[in-house]
Design a protein around this nucleic acid. Structure first.
Length: 272
DNA sequence: CACAATACCTGCTAGC
DNA sequence: TGCTAGCAGGTATTGT
């Protein structure tokens, strides 16, 4: 159930084990995993290809294929809610939720495990790689994500700021948990329209996005190698999942409200 | 066009 | 103990 920091941790964890390795066999045993082309074409086409760089864009993982094969240039994996990539010592004895297995030789396999089966795998042409990257907003930790850029995105968005933060086309990588934490850190009410944020509040929001996301990347990456553990275990969540508990900052009782069918947690005392 | 509601799946847990 | 409703860190698609 990863947001950008956990996806980044997954990339760092698998990178040394897959870079430069040749795919000997690919298996997508359950229907619905492939989002194009079809599973049997992916299984037929990948063997013999070598994995090059492992990159992340937003919450997407890209396994580039070395030697620029035609037509497909990269394997795209989106973990959605419950996906994870693991290095298995053996392609046998797989977890029940295994949705893709890339056998890499030397008793090593990359396994896409996803019990809830919402995650997706695609092969992308160079054009599709560019389209996917271009369709997403700036990376929150990149230099291009300035206060001015945030202000420009917010100005053109009338949605509640919580939903603005979740919009991957405006900023890439923020999810439900960190959106709540970011708004608490910047003392902004989640229902405030994005285009109603003042200059000073946008500056606070920008600082909170960078602060929360960079600390989350650090803590998520620090626990890699411990199966089933996400960075949030180490990252103190001040509002998310804390309905009815006292706010650490002002003591008021934290509230949970629905927004776009999902839970938003916030403090009615210090978020205005 | 912008936004809201729903669909997609399985597993866990709080409450009866 | 055993059942069930509700909820879960995401996003494509459909409807207004």
């Amino acid at each position: 159930m990863p947001e950008m920091p956990e996806v980044e941790a997954v990339c760092r964890r698998i990178r040394p084990h897959v870079t430069g390795r040749t795919i000997e066999r690919a298996r997508l045993p359950r229907p619905g995993t492939a989002a194009g082309p079809a599973a049997d074409e992916i299984e037929r086409w990948l063997p013999g290809k070598r994995i090059g760089r492992v990159l992340r864009r937003g919450k997407n993982i890209l396994l580039y294929l070395a030697g620029k094969p035609i037509p497909w240039r990269a394997v795209q994996v989106h973990l959605r809610m419950t996906g994870d990539l693991e290095i298995a010592p053996d392609a046998r004895l797989l977890p029940a939720g295994a949705r893709m297995i890339l056998e890499l030789g030397a008793r090593r396999a990359l396994v896409f495990n996803d019990p809830r089966a919402l995650g997706r795998v695609r092969l992308l042409t160079p054009d599709q790689v560019r389209q996917m990257c271009a369709s997403l907003g700036p990376e929150p930790l990149a230099a291009a994500f300035t206060i001015e850029r945030l202000a420009a995105e917010a100005r053109s968005c009338r949605k509640p700021v919580k939903l603005f933060l979740l919009d991957q086309e405006r900023i890439a990588g923020i999810g439900n948990i960190y959106a709540a934490e970011i708004l608490h850190a910047s003392r902004i009410h989640p229902r405030r329209p994005a285009n109603a944020l003042s200059k000073p509040r946008l500056a606070l929001l920008h600082a909170a996005i960078r602060n929360i996301m960079s600390r989350a990347v650090q803590s998520a990456s620090a626990v890699y190698g411990e199966p089933g553990r996400w960075g949030e275990d180490e990252f103190p969540l001040l509002v998310y999942g804390r309905e009815s508990e006292p706010c650490a900052r002002c003591g008021r009782s934290i509230r949970r409200i629905p927004q776009a069918g999902r839970s938003t947690y916030y403090c009615p005392g210090c978020q205005r």
